[in-house]
Design a protein around this nucleic acid. Structure first.
Lengths: 213, 213
DNA sequence: CGCATACGAACGACCATTCGTTCGAAGCGA
DNA sequence: TCGCTTCGAACGAATGGTCGTTCGTATGCG
């Protein structure tokens, strides 16, 4: 009678989320119907309600999980070193790497905020704020310590973050640039944006083995 | 009987486009109904069809005009100097300035491509490609001439463009940073991203009068 | 008078979601 | 192993709503 969406994490409900993620990412939330999602799984639309509670919750789950993963990844990068310069490099690399590996998630995360209904919207916006503050505060600390030089840590942080977001829109693992190529190059660029020490010659040239993660 | 959308540019039809632009920008195309647009003008939905032919055409007009304005602005910046370094600076500044001044237009331009139906979609995508190619080719020329240094002109160009797009999402003319602050700082950053010559000390500090435009 | 413009009514289409039903596989006592 | 029960999962039908758009008509200004 009542509609329990399973243990909240059944195998099938994960499949539904994944299908929704793909469709949301390349058509947008409002342009995707429950029928579309169902069709991707060879189901009828009403059957979806055995696995999820509502279309809106589907979107919220996707965005919340994405933001939390991003936060976790970057926080771990920050905790991996005491040196502010190295922290910014690793945080930027983690940011870019996530965007290269999870284009669907971040596309939805960046395009569909307006499609979230309150109070979900406020919650996600706060997570985003927390995330960007990690970078702003880090750069501000670096400026105070004299290792970075920029007139506006805020502007520098936003520039770095936005650059990384762009990666999710063009990067393809089979392209001319490997994931590491892109990640390391963006790491260098991020340091430049924050006015960090200029690398004498770019370290870690060519493709090295995967150092982290 | 037939529905001529006026001389295609009546005062009223411009007002409709503007209302649609505002709503598309902060709710998204699919989340905006013709009724919403009409309400913003204190009209009923069917009345809109005295001024525009279809919702889809509204979106296409907005995006095509935006892309053409952007192209014109950057091409003019490129034509204003023979020096590759100065060209990149001015093109980047023009790019950022447009994004600071026309946040609604570029928000729609960047978020609603999927909402365009063919053949409009292909047309706009081509304009965007033409636009980004301006930057890619410029940086490639600079690398060939030895004034820029980057392992990938494509990656550098995308980074610069994406940074500028980000400005449209947070910049506000009443904020702590003036438009010129942001524009000039991004100009410097863009040169850094492309590996241009390092400025001895940042020129044009503080707020100068508006040099161009 | 004529024309641009606004309107209400109506259209067919599609939307997310609910409901009652059915079907098939799993669990279990005998 | 049989037969009975339970239950998740899928379905078709239906609900109320909104969508973009068309049409015929009314209104009011030049």
């Amino acid at each position: 009678m009542a509609k329990p969406p399973a243990p909240a994490r059944s195998a099938r409900s994960i499949a539904v989320r994944d299908a929704a993620l793909t469709l949301f990412a390349d058509r947008g939330y409002h342009a995707t119907s429950m029928k579309d999602i169902a069709a991707a799984l060879q189901l009828q639309a009403p059957s979806l309600y055995n696995h999820v509670s509502a279309k809106q919750d589907l979107l919220h789950d996707i965005m919340a999980q994405t933001m939390n993963e991003l936060l976790k990844t970057v926080r771990s990068a920050l905790a991996s070193s005491d040196d502010l310069v190295e922290q910014l490099r690793r945080a930027s690399e983690a940011h870019v790497r996530y965007h290269a590996r999870h284009p669907r998630e971040v596309r939805v995360g960046n395009h569909e905020i307006a499609a979230l209904e309150e109070p979900h919207r406020r919650e996600i916006v706060e997570l985003r704020r927390t995330y960007s503050d990690l970078f702003v505060a880090l750069i501000a600390r670096g400026v105070a310590a004299g290792v970075f030089e920029t007139r506006s840590p805020l502007l520098a942080a936003y520039a770095i973050l936005q650059m990384g977001i762009g990666v999710s829109m063009w990067f393809h693992p089979d392209g001319a640039l490997s994931e590491d190529d892109v990640v390391f190059q963006y790491g260098d660029i991020a340091l430049g944006v924050a006015g960090g020490p200029r690398p004498r010659r770019s370290r870690r040239a060519g493709r090295a083995g995967r150092p982290r993660r």
